[in-house]
Amino acid sequence: MSWLSPALKPIGLIWFDHFLTSSLGKKVIMSLTGLFLILFLMVHLMGNLQLLNADGGESFNKYTYFMTHNPLIKTVSYLLYLFILLHAIQGWRLWAQNHHARGGQGYAVQVVRAVGTNGRVAARMGWLGTIIFVFLVLHMWQFWFQMKTGNVTMVLIGEVEHKDLYTPVVAAFSNLFYVIVYVFSMWIIAVHLWHGFQSAFQTLGLNHKKYTPLIRFLGKLYSVLVPLGFALIPLLVYGQVQGWWSVNLSLTH
């Protein structure tokens, strides 16, 4: 039974309610929302890489303009916010339930052996996820909220007025504290996905001699490369601002 049951019962979907509240159903929600977030992160990274185009932010501002004006993408973005919340809330609930199921008395000698994944990471998904959540709140406040509340200047690209998001991003990435927080968070996401990527497939029952080794390989590749890609951008920007290197980023218009 869940808070959805009164709505689901009259339309004959009580079985679906049972499913959603079963231990397996709860995990299916984690898995599907997690996989959606994995897909999203890849698209997000491709957008962010526009920051490295040495055109004073033109391609990045065009990209953000596109993302905020295309109706399909706008719809998907609201779905994204919903899924992040669903993933986080469900994750916290699972964390609490699992903690409760273990009972009050822990083991005096604690060891986690595992097969084909890192058991210590797998047992700490709740902590890792919570750190990611805190980062996401900060991240949304810093970029999304500022953008929505119009705390940005406008630039002309061609004939069209664009919000200049490039300048605040570069400003944030010039701040050592923010760069450290950002890079640390990417590392946490990498660790979360080191276990999470393959786990999502196992949860859906997608375990097969022929495909599982490939899924595990892609999972490791993804969880290293994508967070690394995100982390490189602030590092490159910060280094250039400090004059440590010049990677040909024209940081001003």
Binding site: S22, S23, K26, K27, L94, Q97, N98, H100, A101, R102, V112, R113, A114, V115, G116, T117, G119, A122, A123, M125, H195, Q198, S199, Q202, T203
Partner: peptide, 16 residues
């Protein structure tokens, strides 16, 4: 679920 066991996080400590 009724017995109050936890949910699987695919930790795989069970198999080990």
């Amino acid at each position: 679920d009724l017995e109050g066991f936890g949910n699987c996080s695919n930790v795989t400590a069970c198999e080990a």
